[in-house]
Structures are given as structure tokens and as C-alpha cells.
Measured scan of single mutants.
Amino acid sequence: TTVKLGDIKVTFDNPEKAKKYAQKLAKIYQLTVHVHGDTIHVK
């Protein structure tokens, strides 16, 4: 599962960890989390 934020891409083996990371980023940057299959976009 890949978390994308602009040019930053972080890949996790564990989808749950990816989701938590995405939510953490979203909170920090006051953005929202969008899940598209294996990719989680923070924008």
C-alpha cells in the first residue's frame, strides 16, 4: 500500500499502518485521505 502526498511516496507492507500514517499526515497538514485501491492519497 502506497501513501502519496505531493511528490512524497511511502510504501507499506501493512495496509493498516499505511492508513494510520496517512491519517497522521492528513492531521498535520490539515488535508483529507482518499483511498484508491492500493494507493492512499493525502490531499
Rank of each mutant, 00 (worst) to 15 (best):
T1P: 04
T1Q: 04
T2R: 04
T2F: 08
T2V: 12
T2I: 13
V3E: 02
V3K: 03
V3C: 13
K4I: 15
K4T: 09
L5K: 03
L5P: 02
L5W: 15
G6E: 03
G6R: 08
G6A: 05
D7M: 14
D7I: 14
D7G: 13
D7Q: 14
I8Q: 06
I8W: 15
I8D: 02
K9P: 02
K9Y: 13
K9M: 13
V10C: 15
V10S: 03
V10F: 13
T11I: 13
T11F: 14
T11C: 15
F12V: 01
F12C: 08
F12S: 00
F12K: 00
D13P: 07
D13S: 13
N14C: 11
P15W: 14
P15F: 15
E16F: 10
E16C: 14
E16R: 09
K17P: 03
A18F: 03
A18I: 03
A18N: 00
K19A: 10
K19I: 14
K19V: 10
K19S: 07
K19W: 15
K20E: 11
K20D: 07
K20G: 05
Y21A: 03
Y21L: 05
Y21T: 01
A22L: 06
A22M: 04
A22Q: 01
A22V: 06
Q23W: 11
Q23A: 11
Q23H: 10
K24M: 14
L25E: 00
L25K: 02
L25H: 00
L25C: 12
L25F: 03
L25Y: 03
A26W: 05
A26Y: 04
A26P: 00
K27G: 06
I28N: 04
Y29L: 09
Y29W: 08
Y29N: 02
L31R: 02
L31A: 07
T32N: 06
T32I: 11
T32Y: 08
V33T: 05
V33I: 13
V33G: 01
H34K: 08
H34A: 10
H34Y: 13
H34R: 08
V35T: 07
V35E: 07
H36T: 11
H36M: 14
H36G: 05
H36C: 15
G37A: 06
G37H: 04
G37N: 06
G37P: 03
G37I: 04
D38A: 10
D38C: 12
D38M: 10
T39D: 04
H41Q: 07
V42T: 02
V42D: 01
V42F: 10
K43R: 13
K43T: 14
K43N: 07
